[in-house]
Simulated assay, not measured.
Amino acid sequence: MSQEQLPAALPAYDRLLEELRIIRRPGLAGLRGADHPALRAAALAGGFCGGPDDIPAGIEALLKEAVRRLGEGDLLGRAAAHTFGLLPDRRGAPAPDRRKSAAAVYGVTSERFRKHQEPQVLQQLAEAVLTVLREPAAPPVPDLAGGGPQHPPRRFDAVAVGGDGTVTLHVSPIELLRDIDILVSSENVYLEMSKTFRPTVSGALRLAAAVRDPSGEIVDDVLVRELGAWLRTHGRPGLPVRPGTVVPTSSGELAARGVRRIYHAAVATPYEEGYRVTPSSIARAVSACFALARQESEQQGTPLTSIGFPLLGAGRGGLDPVLSATWLRWAVRDELAKDPVRQVHLVVRSRAAADAIRGL
């Protein structure tokens, strides 16, 4: 995409490339200690952060999305993930170690990688950032407290789901949403969360909820720890649960964003070549989420009124996104007819997915 096609507020390719070169050495752990105006502008314009305090996390989320666009199975994507420490065990690694790991992706020495492959990796990552930004973000919202305009994750108005029910449709990484009581994570039937470097809802929520030390290393994998406790309590370690089962945990560090609970919906059944998701398990999971929200609201004495759903099973689960959205809408419509007090949010990663959902 040429620079002339970009909105004026977005950074130029050359500036993005230069800042990627600068942050390569300190890595993600150094984002908070220095200003990177082009990457900051990109994260804000793309809806990856909601204000100044979120900028380091927003830049990290933007780079992860850009790596996803390059392809986690592609040499460029894998090398970029290693170069910037976007993998859970490489985040705080020294720059020479990260470069060595990236070089190993290509099967070359660190010095050859530095001279030949690394420049291409950085160039393609800058291009991928601009590709992510092709989808327009919502306009800035004035900050009445005087702190300047805020840039929330992209959001659409209410979308009808049938009857009197509506959902609010967001185009945003789910972990960057604010002030939604419950976020739903799509899991397999063994309740094994995705790795934190995977471009999945499960992996993103796991990373966002984890407690990290100043260097960025995870010191408490909150959601995995609490799921493990649930499995032990219910006698299910190493055993599957019924598809559609929903297990609650705390929200860990996401509590700072106004998220109070994470509901883990077991919808994907592993098999030899991947995962299998049946649409009926989505309907069961939605019903279970509503029931659990009512139960926990009564037990805790504080209403849990808002629930955010991703397209369950449409990531690594392999279910067609439109089919997932269709069953979600049917299930939500039925639940809202019985429980109209709940406010439902549907979260997708791309404008194309949002447009498809609006057209259903």
Rank of each mutant, 00 (worst) to 15 (best):
A208K: 00
P11V: 00
V184N: 02
V108K: 11
L76V: 02
A229E: 15
D14C: 09
L144N: 06
L10Q: 15
P152K: 11
A160I: 05
P153L: 07
A210F: 12
L6Q: 15
L223M: 03
D339E: 03
P94S: 01
A12M: 07
A325G: 07
K195Q: 11
P94E: 04
S324E: 12
P243D: 09
A138M: 10
V67C: 14
L17N: 07
G313L: 15
D53I: 01
A45P: 03
F156N: 07
L323E: 15
P199W: 09
D164A: 14
V211I: 07
A314W: 12
E118M: 09
A229G: 02
L231V: 03
L312Y: 00
C289F: 10
V332G: 05
P119H: 09
T245I: 03
L328K: 04
G163I: 08
E298P: 03
S185D: 13
R257H: 14
P340K: 07
G162A: 05
A29Y: 00
T233P: 02
A288E: 14
D334Y: 01
G203L: 08
E118V: 00
P340I: 09
L231F: 04
R25Y: 11
A29V: 00
A158Y: 02
A80M: 14
V341I: 10
L169Y: 08
P173V: 04
R114T: 12
L323Y: 10
R134K: 14
L304S: 00
G318D: 10
A285E: 13
V246W: 01
L336G: 14
I357V: 15
G252S: 05
G203H: 07
L87H: 05
A352V: 04
R91E: 01
A256R: 13
P26E: 12
H36C: 05
E4G: 09
R257N: 15
G359L: 11
R276M: 12
T109P: 10
D97P: 05
V141K: 11
L360M: 14
G146M: 05
K115C: 02
S281C: 13
T109K: 15
M193D: 10
E4M: 11
G147I: 08
D181C: 11
T269Y: 02
R155P: 04
I218Y: 11
A80W: 09
V129M: 02
L125G: 04
A356D: 13
H170K: 01
L360G: 11
R342D: 05
L130Q: 15
R112E: 04
H151Q: 09
E187A: 12
E18Y: 05
L122H: 12
D339Y: 01
L87E: 06
D54W: 03
G235N: 14
S281Q: 07
G359K: 02
S110L: 12
E4D: 15
E4C: 06
L328E: 06
S324V: 09
V259K: 01
P310R: 06
A354P: 09
L133F: 03
P173S: 04
S350C: 10
S251I: 11
Q123R: 15
A353E: 15
P199Y: 13
D54A: 04
R154C: 10
L28G: 05
V141Q: 13
V222R: 03
R260F: 08
I180P: 08
G313R: 03
G58A: 03
I55K: 00
R329Q: 13
R68S: 01
A126P: 06
L16F: 14
E226G: 03
G92C: 06
E226A: 00
L144C: 04
P214A: 12
